[in-house]
Design a protein around this nucleic acid. Structure first.
Length: 833
RNA sequence: GGGCAGGUGGUGAAAUUGGUAAACACGCUAGGUUUAGGACCUAGUGCCUUAAUCGGCUUGGAGGUUCGAGUCCUCUCCUGCCCACCA
């Protein structure tokens, strides 16, 4: 064990004092924005999962700094939002007070892990200086026409007592508290992210992101191309509009289905003869949670709207209209043409309710299933008969548009971002509602609403005593007249301030613009700074944000670009997701009580050991399994490094003239290979193999002088292998991983402060390979021996030597060699019988 | 049901364009050493067989391509994560 505790304390202080991690934001020559997803400050503090992500990101940043970049690596807290508020509720503290103590704890822990943070630019999203600009952004979005207030069927979490965005409902449950989410019809604020659906999708091809994240976004955006088709209703002016990706199957549409929430149901009320049954069904589905609906997937339910019929425009047949909850009001038009022959769900429904089934695609002879989804020629389809699906689609759409029944349409799974929350701990939405102006307005949506005047920002969040969610659909701020009673900015009449707050994900969708502008009090972000530093060069974070934070940030950037605020569309040039740290095979969770807190490990082993252990577990992008036992290996390694270099430093002091030991042959290639491999591996975030390579090099050079050791922990090591410079180079290669111990040893060797500002070692191509190679000898592809040879040995020579090797001779015997495969400097393979 | 990762020793894991499978560590075994510790040093450690060598087998399973397959192809089984009645 080496005296890590003194060392780490000493350098932490010196780094802060000498500001080596604070680039000049205005004058930096080679800016490199190295960003990591900032944490939600929960009260338990940082756990190893957070530490893992931050350390992995920091290693990359430290490497880039040594590569000559002005690396900016900021940190902050995403402290607004339901997560922090729920915790405050649990411990019965005011969120503002809780935020203060969480902040203290988090920053303290974050200082411990040895990252090169630019502390001077840290930010917390809940400070008025920050959310002033979050509100400002809301208003800019409003002005750009990207904000809408409208009534919709939305996700409601009964436990958090607020609405949630689609992205925050995970498996029908609230992302924060895991309660089952229900649907409610409420008037809410939306950001129109769907305006950018196509760009969000197509830009994915332009950015250097982890594939898993790109694919997740692609699936979430969920583009599907098809047609919108009108089905007229008999004796009515109304139509049923449907969206389908299979217009070619229209001749098989034997009935229609509306979602229970579909507005047509009310419009057709007069004609419906079984009104009571219909009403009952609608009520029943509304009381179901999302999960109950999903659980019922296998048993379809529904009611026919008796007394009304639709007309299939293709064959003019009258077909029944049903309502069923397997059709979702939120996708497409909330209505479908049911084609049981080609859709499994429709098949099931048709079977259950004895509805006619017509196949319109001919299944193969051996097909045994129900609905047939595969390819094949059209049948029972009049003018489409015989056509393959793609052709039939085209022709159908042509026919539909010619006759005024439909057109092509593209649909997206992506919904608008529901941004309002009926909670307390967030930035008040800076909008004002004036009833008088509403009356005068002709708009359907947004009537009477206007933004708060910019000079009033920030709209301060008052420190309410009772901040609990009310559950009435109103936010806690609605019980504070002092807050909501305002004058209309337009007509000066009595008006009401919005009392909902905005979603936490709005706070985090733009924080990286603010880090580089913390000194700018009069603007959210400064044009020149943004030009210099953005987009972010490398962003590292968890994959769980694939469709949340990362999608919202991209959306905001696109909106900013269109507003002329910035000149790029994609905020993160490169993005990598890191893996998850699990504990002995299981996911860490509070309920299992297996959450690993880094503090005690730092105390016992130092943060260099913790850093390296975490990175050594496995590939950074895969995560790994935390086992206490594994730390020992790293602890031993760093202790040996310490002993070796300390002895080395003493030796230099004693024999100053003996410092230029020449490079020993065997180590030279290994040394240069290590420089190459460590650099390449860091670029690829394969920290585990970079570390193992450093161990290999160190093991090779840590040879005792006399060949004998004195049997004690502190061996007098020989200094073979590396010359004076190369000793320092080894420390440089190690320093991104273990910044403290290397800084100390660097100093001990008599080098100038700081190792973190040194140039990364360069390898020399010609030294990468040694002269000696080992040539593999195979017989029929099986290893039968190896020989040492000089690089570049000829085939002829190699064959000769190989044939002479005993173990090869035995196998070859007197058999005839049919063929010889020779791979230069690698292997020779004799093929016999 | 769909998508994405994966499946290699007792454990975490390595393995360029197909070319010595198991690097680097942990653990274990034996020996050494000591100021008896949460230590250190040396040697060994995939499996079977053997006193040891020799030999044989081995990357979830079954086939295939190839001089040669963990790596490529086909089928199949299993695990994890994400999405999910998306028309």
């Amino acid at each position: 064990m080496y005296p890590f505790s003194n060392i780490e304390k000493k350098w932490k202080e010196k780094w802060l004092k000498t500001r080596i991690y604070e680039p000049d934001l205005d004058k930096a020559k080679k800016p490199f924005y190295n960003l990591m997803m900032f944490p939600y400050p929960s009260a338990e503090g940082l756990h190893v999962g957070n530490a893992y992500a931050f350390i992995g990101s920091d290693i990359y940043g430290r490497y880039k700094r040594m590569r000559g970049y002005d690396v900016f690596e900021p940190i902050g807290l995403d402290g607004f939002g339901i997560h922090s508020e729920n915790y405050a509720l649990k411990v019965k503290k005011h969120p503002a007070d809780q935020a203060e103590s969480s902040k203290e704890r988090f920053y303290k822990q974050l200082q411990e892990i040895g990252n090169g943070f630019a502390w001077e630019e840290r930010l917390e999203t809940y400070t008025p200086e920050y959310y002033k600009w979050t509100q400002w952004i809301f208003i800019q979005m409003w002005k750009a026409g990207l904000v809408e207030r409208r009534k919709a069927s939305v996700n409601w979490c009964p436990s958090c007592k607020t609405v949630l965005a689609d992205e925050q409902v995970v498996g029908g449950r609230c992302e924060r508290c895991d309660s089952e989410v229900i649907k409610k019809d409420l008037e809410q604020w939306f950001f129109k992210i769907t305006n950018y659906a196509e760009k969000l999708l197509s830009n994915l091809e332009k950015i250097d992101w982890s594939d898993n994240i790109k694919i997740a976004q692609k699936n979430w955006i969920g583009k599907s191309e098809g047609a919108r088709i009108n089905f007229p209703i008999v004796d009515s002016k109304e139509n049923i509009e449907v969206f389908t990706t299979r217009p070619d199957t229209i001749f098989g549409a034997t009935y229609m289905v509306l979602a229970p929430e579909h507005p047509l149901i009310r419009k057709l009320e007069e004609k419906i003869s079984n009104k009571k049954a219909v009403q009952d069904y609608v009520l029943k589905t509304q009381s179901k949670t999302e999960n109950e609906r999903i659980a019922d997937t296998k048993s379809k339910t529904g009611v026919e709207l008796e007394g009304v019929k639709a007309i299939n425009p293709a064959n003019k047949k009258e077909i029944p209209i049903w309502i069923a909850d397997y059709v979702l009001s939120s996708y497409g038009t909330g209505a479908i043409m049911a084609v049981p022959g080609q859709d499994e769900r429709d098949w099931e429904f048709a079977e259950k309710f004895k509805l006619p089934i017509v196949r319109t695609v001919k299944p193969p002879k051996d097909f045994k299933g129900d609905a047939y989804l595969g390819d094949g020629p059209a049948i029972n389809s009049d003018f489409l008969d015989g056509l393959e699906i793609e052709e039939a689609k085209k022709k159908t759409i042509q026919w539909l548009s010619k006759n005024g029944f439909g057109r092509t349409e593209t649909n997206y799974h992506l919904r608008d971002w529901l941004i309002s929350r009926q909670r307390y701990w967030g930035p008040p939405i800076p909008m004002i509602y004036c009833p008088a102006c509403a009356k005068a307005s002709a708009d359907k949506n947004n009537a009477g609403w206007q933004p708060a005047p910019l000079k009033d920002l920030p709209i301060l969040l008052p420190k309410l005593k009772d901040f609990r969610p009310k559950g009435t659909g109103e936010a806690p701020l609605a019980s504070s007249p002092a807050f909501y009673k305002v004058k209309c900015p337009k007509c000066k009449g009595p008006a009401r301030r919005e009392t909902d707050v905005s979603d936490t994900f709005l706070d985090s969708a733009w924080y990286f613009y603010r880090y580089i502008n913390m000194d700018k009090k009069k603007e959210a972000f400064n044009e020149l700074r943004v030009k210099k530093w953005l987009p972010v060069d490398m962003y590292i974070g968890g994959a769980e944000h694939a469709v949340l934070h990362l999608l919202y940030s991209r959306f905001l950037a696109m909106a900013f670009k269109d507003m002329g605020l910035i000149d790029f569309e994609e905020p993160f040039t490169a993005l990598r997701s890191h893996g998850l740290i699990i504990k002995e095979g299981a996911k860490m969770s509070k309920s299992k009580g297996n959450v690993v807190i880094p503090d005690k490990y730092i105390k016992r082993f130092g943060s260099d050991v913790l850093r390296m252990y975490l990175m050594f577990i496995g590939p950074f992008q895969d995560g790994g399994d935390w086992r206490d036992g594994g730390i020992a290996g790293i602890e031993r390694f760093l202790t040996r490094v310490w002993n070796y270099f300390e002895a080395r430093a003493k030796f230099i002091k004693k024999y100053p003239s003996a410092t230029n030991v020449s490079v020993i042959k065997e180590v030279a290639p290994l040394f240069h290979q290590t420089i190459k491999k460590v650099g390449d591996d860091i670029e690829d975030l394969k920290y585990n193999t970079a570390i193992s390579q450093l161990m290999i090099l160190f093991n090779a050079l840590e040879e005792p002088v006399s060949g004998k050791n004195n049997a004690r922990g502190t061996l007098i090591k020989g200094f073979v292998g590396l010359n004076k410079n190369q000793h320092g180079e080894f420390l440089k290669l190690l320093t991104p991983f273990a910044p403290f111990i290397t800084e100390e040893l660097w100093e001990k060797l008599g080098n100038p402060y700081s190792i973190h500002q040194q140039k990364w070692p360069e390898y020399i191509e010609k030294y990468l390979t040694g002269d000696e190679i080992s040539l593999i000898i195979q017989v029929n592809g099986k290893l039968r021996g190896t020989i040492q040879a000089t690089r570049g040995i000829s085939e002829k020579e190699a064959i000769e030597i190989a044939k002479g090797v005993d173990s090869v001779k035995v196998v070859l015997g007197k058999k005839k060699i049919k063929k010889t495969v020779f791979v230069p400097d690698k292997l020779i393979n004799f093929v016999i019988n």
